[in-house]
Design a protein around this nucleic acid. Structure first.
Lengths: 133, 133
DNA sequence: CTCTTTTTAATAATGATTATCAATATTAAT
DNA sequence: ATTAATATTGATAATCATTATTAAAAAGAG
């Protein structure tokens, strides 16, 4: 589907690009509203989504929508399925090594912590790719 | 507030610990229901939250609830405020270096990508700490 | 211009999570 | 053990972010 060149779309991208910060949809909505007062919040959501599919905007927050919980508290690392959001543990020496580095770096920078997740497609989602029924 | 030792809490933790996977609250609810059929979904949510505050459970999904968007698409890196969720860019050579390593590692493991965010408290939240009025 | 497709504003619907609250269970104090 | 104080529960309503719906308007193609 080809994106047409609407005023709303143009202004949304233009205003987003002006910002140093990384706004939520409703924050950007408030800003765009100053130029197009009757614009709808849904339009902002819709266009941010389309623009990020088209690679003109970066959508942070790549994780899925539901929270997930882990009964193991010792430090270990995770891969999240890029399509269904399921999370599995990963035991790979290099992954462990990068996390160690991050521990040190975060300490050095005096920060609170970090959040690293690898992304891949899980078994189940790959199977679906093969036979999409 | 001290946690009391309820059946529900015990079973929730016990079942979560049995799992290799990292369930969502409602997935765990279905499992726990087999042992306590009348348990409420809210109880599962409540206890997962309390247990993770107490450090007995890990809450994945550290990112905030609202999505955030970025008008700059070139690769660059982010710090998220641990308390309010705001995101800022970070330009630090070592952070850039770790990300480069991750690019290589992810490529080598044949994965789709990764998601790394540093966590800290932003200016605004620090100010609030000082004078909590 | 005219037809087709896409987009819009307004608003309803959804899904995940959190809040409320009266009844019950747990803990602490006697 | 009994009682008083506190914490928790199940049920359900409320909230919040996001997505879907829809009729009308705008954009693009010919």
């Amino acid at each position: 589907m080809k994106l047409s060149n609407t005023l709303q779309r143009r202004i949304i991208l233009e205003e987003l690009r002006k910002l140093e910060c990384h706004p939520t949809a409703d924050e950007l909505y408030e800003i765009v509203r100053k130029r197009i007062p009757q614009i709808s919040l849904a339009t902002v959501y819709r266009n941010l989504e389309l623009l990020s599919e088209g690679g003109q905007v970066l959508k942070l927050q790549q994780t899925g929508k539901q929270k997930r919980f882990d009964g193991r508290v010792e430090s270990h690392y995770h891969v999240r399925c890029a399509s269904c959001g399921r999370v599995a543990d990963i035991w790979d020496d290099e992954v462990i090594a990068v996390n160690r580095q991050l521990d040190v770096l975060v300490e050095k920078l005096g920060m609170e912590g970090y959040m690293l997740e690898l992304n891949d497609r899980c078994e189940k989602c790959r199977e679906k790719d093969e036979k999409p029924e």
